[in-house]
């Protein structure tokens, strides 16, 4: 039994099956990420002043990762074009680069960006104690400039036992630049190059802390959405890479010999998925890193 229109287009639609299939799938993906982004909008609009942190992510690294994804989008379309022109070795070359780009993206995300957050600490101060920690927060200064208040003291937690041990009543935090010099106008707005951590250590009493948390999803709705959306996006990248590797392995050469058009179609479909993943990132990057 043969299913019609697997490689040739049906005359009245002008499309072969998988092309329609992938577009339908992408439509559902649009709705999936639509659901996530609508949660983002909702939670951000709903956040109390100061509770949607900005400038916590590493912009140069994010920019680099964006560039890597864009480059991989170019190479995948070149790989497809090479197949269309029946240049198989070129196809292998471009596809190889695409796979590399995908892997680098994931490694940067999983081995650098995420872990560095997991090791960063923040203590949100209760409204009643904000005044007490004003030297670290500089809210009077921020109010003057029309900025949102700071509600958190963050940095490196010097006594991590404090997280679990109830008898320790203080967090010792090696401060981030913003808390070390809260009045420095450079710290009013997010910076491009992350400011180096200071040597100052602050002692924050647990009684004054609303929520103490490493920079993990639990920390805030910001990190919750960040990790969920980038995590799901990362899974998509991983899925794409796996498919590409499959299309790059020797099976592809065999398929190429038998039916090059079918291989081209498969690459096109996988490529469409990949471009979509890129497209999602184009929104993720400014929404989380920049704005």
């Amino acid at each position: 039994m043969e299913i019609p229109y697997t490689t040739t287009a049906r005359p009245d639609t002008g499309l072969w099956n998988a092309k329609i299939g992938i577009w339908l799938f992408l439509a559902s993906e649009v709705m999936l990420f639509g659901g996530l982004f609508s949660a983002y909008i909702f939670l951000r609009l709903d956040a109390a002043p100061g509770h949607w942190p900005r400038g916590l992510l590493n912009v140069p690294v994010g920019t680099m990762n964006t560039a890597i994804l864009i480059a991989s989008s170019v190479t995948v379309v070149l790989a497809w074009a090479a197949l269309k022109m029946r240049q198989f070795s070129k196809y292998k070359f471009y596809m190889g680069i695409t796979i590399l780009c995908g892997i680098v993206f994931l490694v940067v995300k999983l081995a650098y960006e995420w872990p560095i957050k997991f090791h960063h600490f923040g203590a949100k101060i209760t409204p009643a104690a904000l005044e007490k920690y004003e030297p670290y927060l500089g809210n009077a200064h921020l109010r003057e400039g029309g900025y949102e208040p700071r509600v958190e003291i963050s940095g490196h937690l010097e006594n991590p036992e404090a997280l679990h041990d109830e008898s320790i009543r203080e967090y010792h935090i090696k401060l981030d630049a913003a808390n070390a010099e809260p009045l420095n106008p450079d710290n009013d707005r997010p910076r491009f190059w992350p400011a180096p951590m200071s040597d100052k250590i602050a002692h924050v009493s647990k009684d004054d802390v609303q929520l103490a948390s490493m920079y993990v999803p639990k920390h805030s709705t910001f990190f919750a959405t960040y990790f969920t959306i980038t995590g799901l996006h990362g899974l998509h990248v991983l899925g794409g890479v796996i498919v590409f590797i499959y299309l790059w392995l020797p099976v592809s050469a065999r398929l190429y010999k038998r039916n090059p058009e079918q291989l081209a179609n498969r690459v096109e479909v996988a490529g469409l998925f990949w471009h979509f993943v890129d497209l999602v990132w184009i929104f993720v990057f400014p929404l989380f890193y920049l704005l």
Binding site: L24, G34, G35, V216, P217, K218
Partner: peptide, 25 residues
């Protein structure tokens, strides 16, 4: 199914995060 289910899939993932990672979606 195609267009209405995915937002709930997103919501289910978020509720899972609320349960597993103590987030506050």
């Amino acid at each position: 199914l195609l267009l209405a289910f995915p937002p709930l899939e997103a919501a289910a993932v978020m509720q899972l995060m609320d349960r597993l990672a103590a987030t506050s979606f």
